[in-house]
Design a protein around this nucleic acid. Sequence first.
DNA 1: TTGAAAATTGGCCGCACGGTCAGCAAGGTG
DNA 2: CACCTTGCTGACCGTGCGGCCAATTTTCAA
Lengths: 182, 182
Amino acid sequence: MAATPLRERTRHEIQHEAMVLFARKGYDATSLQDIANAVGCSKATVLYHFSGKPAVLAAVLEPSATALAALVSEAAQLSPAAAQLHAIKGFADLAVRGRGLISVLNDVMPTMGEMPEFDGLIAAGEQLTRLLAGSEDPLESGLAEFAINGLLGECRGSEQRTDDDLRELCVTAMRRLLSPPA
Amino acid sequence: MAATPLRERTRHEIQHEAMVLFARKGYDATSLQDIANAVGCSKATVLYHFSGKPAVLAAVLEPSATALAALVSEAAQLSPAAAQLHAIKGFADLAVRGRGLISVLNDVMPTMGEMPEFDGLIAAGEQLTRLLAGSEDPLESGLAEFAINGLLGECRGSEQRTDDDLRELCVTAMRRLLSPPA
DNA sequence: TTGAAAATTGGCCGCACGGTCAGCAAGGTG
DNA sequence: CACCTTGCTGACCGTGCGGCCAATTTTCAA
């Protein structure tokens, strides 16, 4: 092999170990030294490949952010009712698959507004809320936020549930919570 | 006046300012120096009145923990259906009234298991889940967890909603989510 | 008034963090 | 061979944290 340049190989290794650690302990509680130890390199090497700790986070979150953006972009081309259904299923699936990272979101949420790397993620989240609510009614919007929060919390908390069980639970809950659009 | 001993007066002042700061910035992001500045005393004074930062947190959380324990204790004497209703209304009210502190819970959640001061709070939370679920069915338990997570997240996030609106939203959401016990 | 107890404080400690930098080893290229 | 680029590292820096302590001020009852 060795088809992968050494450069990219190490970078991905750091990214992967950072993902595991962020998922297990959260963003704040994971130090650059922790990541370096997991990879088996020095802290300086981590900072050679990434401009700083937030850049590592951005790299870890990027696939999920892209997937979420794709999801809302797909749903935007459907009728309101179909869009809501697509959003429910797609978001539940996305959250369950990347469930370890959800505690990270929670850590970072308060300071996210000041990090421009995450503007896209925030915007996608707001659009998801609108798709789930199906209208501008404050009650429906509130229920949509409630659903998102419940789903994120549930994915964060339950480590022992299987992916399939968790996905089914989330879809059931969101179905109960959200009114079908007119 | 001066009926209050100086001792208790300062202690409560620290507790109050800590509550405000924890609510605004979270537990981790609030330093003992921040609290001291808000009170107008030195950091050493804070540590004279409390044995450490976790003790300040415990004092701040204590009223809510007591109220939650009282709530589940009341509900335990009711029929399953009435208990569920009581738990929904009481918990929504409790969460809305102390909503600022909910972000604190979130900060502390990962390390809560290691702090024995919060064993009672955790136990009360588990009993609340059981009351809301109304049965031992995994799906119902999951929905109850979902409801609690959604409620906590919603109270954390929406700063601009009025207390009454938020309470109504939470009750509506939990009603939709939870099946009435047989 | 006075002296013990309570309350408060500035200064210090050790620690862990994110981040910087000069330099080392390796490997391809003229 | 010399030379330069690439990947990497140990040592170091400044900062802010929680916590501790000796010394000082304040309180208040005898």
